[in-house]
Design a protein around this nucleic acid. Structure first.
Lengths: 248, 248
DNA sequence: CGTAGTCTTGAACTCACTCAACGATAGTGG
DNA sequence: CCACTATCGTTGAGTGAGTTCAAGACTACG
């Protein structure tokens, strides 16, 4: 078979659940489009009706919510290889925004198309479900992080998670250099701190020798000390989650 | 057909997705047990392997996570009619605790049994998925609440949500009297405030005439003012989510 | 009726915020 | 190529929302 740009999408799902040839075939037959989006542009806005599902191929995206006073909370980040809105595949109305942080490229399929594949192929639906549940687990850890850790640990935790998730995607097991495409204000929106305080905590972590910083990247120098300062335990990422075998 | 204690479970799922007679029959054939649990007892603990799924019939339960220093963050509450761990149906390892707050009764089915029904009945899986996604939406709102609202609004938001969810379950559209089975310390763990501050904010809301308090219950006297103080917009609860029709 | 848990209140403290100014950097247009 | 502008990062000083500590009051329950 020729190369099909939907392959990464299929592989993403196949990493969660073993897919049958029929499953794979149905997925690869979906109409799709490859799209590029500029930083800041919205994939979907709160209260809108979701119309598309997609897989992030390159770049970084974020989910966010706003208070009525305009304060923003980033509720999730997405790296290449992450699905962008399987969360909302069956919801009538989006409950949060999804927005490009950097320039991103994504493969997009129509919501209805993916729904009908999922209807006929339970393995696909199961893969989507598992993906959703793991994202929910990450959101819960963020809630714990924001609610119950002090600024320094909170920021450190954010950096540890980003480093680990990045390492997985790039198949480099011990990557500690993070290309961080977030401004300090955006980091603050993720960990619920002001940009000023983010700046101070970053400098503190640097002064303690846990990280070093250059223009747009951070290197975690002392991983153990950093993970300890962050109270970081990656089990919530469910990295060891076993692939579901086909039952029938 | 005789009355089957699994009925509420089926109805719960059927409220999300239209089920076929075959779906219903398969669900009703599952082995189940009815269980009662005392306040504080664990339904599941973090890092454990989930073995059962259940529906909460009576009482209130909570999900929580702990930092290594022992600080607790409650990441979700469950009222009668809520499912207790469909979240973890496909996860190898629990990422949070689920614990009874009051004495609770629940209908429990074996994880494997529900999985095999879901495998063969896509509508069931879809219903579970929708349930999971709505819970995730609530968790995101909590993250916004804890991260970006001040104590008074944060607490008010918590109370508004509890009142609305309670009202739905009891089919009383405008219920504002809340039987709150949480200590102020537990409320604090939900909204990430100290019990002392929870106490002060409750008294402040009372002094402003937004709520009145008696022993174990709170009445929201001025709903509009309260919702406004809370920055509460219930759209994240997805109450108007339409039931999914069978596609055939 | 005593004990344990919860609620309440006060006082001191502190982590993080606000406000404000300045510096660095990158992109833009003339 | 340089000046202009906007955005981002950095730093200081003052402030405040929420915490900590501590003690007393209330309530439920054996």
């Amino acid at each position: 078979m020729d190369y099909n740009p939907l392959r990464p999408f299929v592989e993403k799902l196949a990493s969660r659940v073993e897919l049958t040839p029929a499953d794979t075939e149905a997925l690869l037959k979906m109409r799709f489009s490859t799209r590029e989006m500029r930083p800041g542009s919205y994939f979907i806005r709160e209260r809108q009706r979701p119309t598309a599902s997609s897989l992030l191929i390159a770049g970084v995206a974020m989910r966010s919510k706003l208070t009525s006073e305009g304060a923003r909370q980033i509720v999730g980040l997405h790296l290449p290889g992450d699905s962008l809105d399987l969360q909302q595949l069956y919801l009538d109305e989006a409950d949060h925004n999804i927005q490009a942080l950097t320039t991103i490229t994504l493969i997009e399929v129509a919501r209805g198309d993916l729904q009908s594949v999922a209807d006929k192929h339970p393995n696909v639906l199961k893969a989507i479900t598992i993906d959703n549940v793991i994202e929910a687990s990450i959101e819960r850890e963020w809630l714990l992080n924001v609610g119950r850790r002090i600024g320094r640990a909170r920021l450190a935790h954010f950096l540890c998670e980003f480093a680990v998730r990045l390492a997985i995607k790039s198949h480099v097991p011990d990557q500690t250099a993070i290309a961080l495409p977030l401004t300090q204000e955006q980091i603050g929106d993720a960990v619920a701190l002001t940009p000023v305080h983010v700046n101070r905590m970053l400098k503190e972590l640097e002064a303690e020798g846990l990280i070093t910083r250059t223009k747009n990247s951070i290197v975690i120098v002392e991983w153990k000390a950093m993970a300890s300062a962050a109270d970081f335990n990656p089990s919530y990422l469910h990295l060891n989650q076993k692939k579901q075998r086909v039952t029938a």
